[in-house]
Design a protein around this nucleic acid. Sequence first.
DNA 1: TTGTAGGCGTTATCAA
DNA 2: TTGATAACGCCTACAA
Lengths: 386, 386
Amino acid sequence: VNRYASRTGRTRRDGARRTTLADVARAAGVSASTASLAVNGTGPVAPATRERVLAAARELGYCGPDPLARSLRRGRCGVVAVVLYERLAYAFSDPMMVSMLDGLADEVEAVGSSLLLVPVPHSDGALEKLASLPMDAAVLDDCDALVSDLVPALRDRGVAVVRVDGPRHGEVPVVDLDEETATDELFTHLAELGHTRFGVITLPLATVRHGGPLDLTSPEGRRRLETAARVQQRRTRAAAASVERLGASVRFVEAARNLVDEGERAAGTLLDRLSSGGDVPTTAIVAQSDVLALGCLRAAAARRLRVPDDLSVTGFDGVDLHLPDGTTLTTIEQPSTEKGRVAGRLVLACLAGDRPEDVRLPTRFRVGTTSGPGPGYERPARARTP
Amino acid sequence: VNRYASRTGRTRRDGARRTTLADVARAAGVSASTASLAVNGTGPVAPATRERVLAAARELGYCGPDPLARSLRRGRCGVVAVVLYERLAYAFSDPMMVSMLDGLADEVEAVGSSLLLVPVPHSDGALEKLASLPMDAAVLDDCDALVSDLVPALRDRGVAVVRVDGPRHGEVPVVDLDEETATDELFTHLAELGHTRFGVITLPLATVRHGGPLDLTSPEGRRRLETAARVQQRRTRAAAASVERLGASVRFVEAARNLVDEGERAAGTLLDRLSSGGDVPTTAIVAQSDVLALGCLRAAAARRLRVPDDLSVTGFDGVDLHLPDGTTLTTIEQPSTEKGRVAGRLVLACLAGDRPEDVRLPTRFRVGTTSGPGPGYERPARARTP
DNA sequence: TTGTAGGCGTTATCAA
DNA sequence: TTGATAACGCCTACAA
């Protein structure tokens, strides 16, 4: 009968074959289909029959339908993959990723699904590995570099794909943020405080770690920006646009990674250049994440610069930094949990056969205690009214 | 032939049935088994035949074996579940959880598996839901309250189970920490600095949020501690033991959750009680996590208490707090990533049919800038030597 | 080197 | 209300 039981299929510790629905059906003297109906509570079964089946199930220690067999049969397995382009510790060091996942989990749990975390590093076997994992849907976050490989591979397999923070790729629905409006507000806020010399610390533009000054007027700099992931591109372009509109000057520095230490280092190159003569001092640093901004605060503290008196620092995300001294960051809040929720809803819609529209979420500029009057500050006219 | 294609199984957007290995085999004029060997690269296949099969596969757009079917056949699906007793955002707000997961992911990825995050809240359907998800193994973290239900249910299904930070339950291997040694060092350190009045902020003892003063001499307090999760129990007992050995006094306060704000609140009850008269001031707060300790720093700052001059604060975990002012916590470092790695290795061992031993990892006491001389401090004799 | 056969455990369909 | 049947897609022991 079961020739391969010892080598394949699910067996228990003691080597015995696991109890299957067929065993239960046999013991209860019913057909497998009836047993299925009874055990699952689907379909009409005579109370007496149901009892007999359940008794047999209890007796034999049947522990429910095998998820794999059921998945094969139904074509759904209750798994939503989250494809990450980084190792977990780094991905999770971004509070926005965490809260996005939380929102996503919330939505997919409502239909009994769970999140499968798939870090897809820059290795060759990554795609095969991904293809061998069971999943009903995949959420692509921050893996722009792979998206043109990933999307077709997943779609062909019948996996529903949703993209977070990225450009549309084929039929893949996208949820992302309106970052431009708030960015412009932020720069306007700083400009009104008298700042005219900005330093911008960008998120890492490429997977191959680089970091350091970024000259967007050079072909090389433009190329780097162009090959960058969507988020970085958008925030950087928005910053450049605002600066230009304000007629201010700006220096860009790329952080090698979205980490506090790298923010500190990047801020250091901005701050130390000014002391090495020649350059005009940067009076306001605009960081593309709160994590990087925290690094800026450290860099400032290390140089005995007071924030915001000597230097204004702004972030992006709206994280609560929990600083003991009560400092709150001037930043742009993004609805990251809601972003995850929306991604979840898009997933569910796709799974239901719909073709949902893209969603763009708003961001909100928030003034904290880290931005203050710059060197050329003049109290605006409208505020002089007695 | 395929009577149910439209309702079941995996179909593509356009409604066409997905290409299967059988289709490829037919097109290539070989048997399904040969096609399997050719596509998977297993077994001996004549080069010409292989080419024919691969060509047919390409032609038909075959995108590899269906993970579900393969899993059913092989009895393994490449999924390691992490069972969490909390919602994701809260679980991930604990940096130790994140780094543990990172280590775990590292190990299981080596065999091509990924992590499935399963938050199992305190609801009824939780167990059924868990049972319906595909998984080869499950790592139980911080779900002591459920473990006696979870373990049998999972074992019966043939799922390998490993426990992090918990007591052994049946045959389930465990990885945990030696927290006692370092805890005693920490209290000794504080005692040598002259502290005799300790405040201890414990991690939440129960899932039902409580928080507030904890009297371990009362039956109620003892009961609360007894029903608490393993980590909390061990850290609290270790603290009580050290305090007793030192002949010092202690007040326990339970944090409602492992969050900065709750640490701040708990510290507040310790600090404000002293000003309300009667009590002798607490001069050193020992928090059971760095997150809680950060809250203590905030509470101290809010009351204009200088750390460590007016108040010493210690933590547990060894997180880098990235505070701008360069403060580093006096704390106990735990090897959380390694803990995850070990959990991963235990999983792999179980999957390989072994019965691995439990593993206990060491922790390390580390002096930072948040502990200093207490009110009764006398420079120890041995340090007076010129 | 290739094909045959059987089965992994379940569930949808249809007929009775 | 129940049962027979087939199929989900793949893999492997064994025979040829």
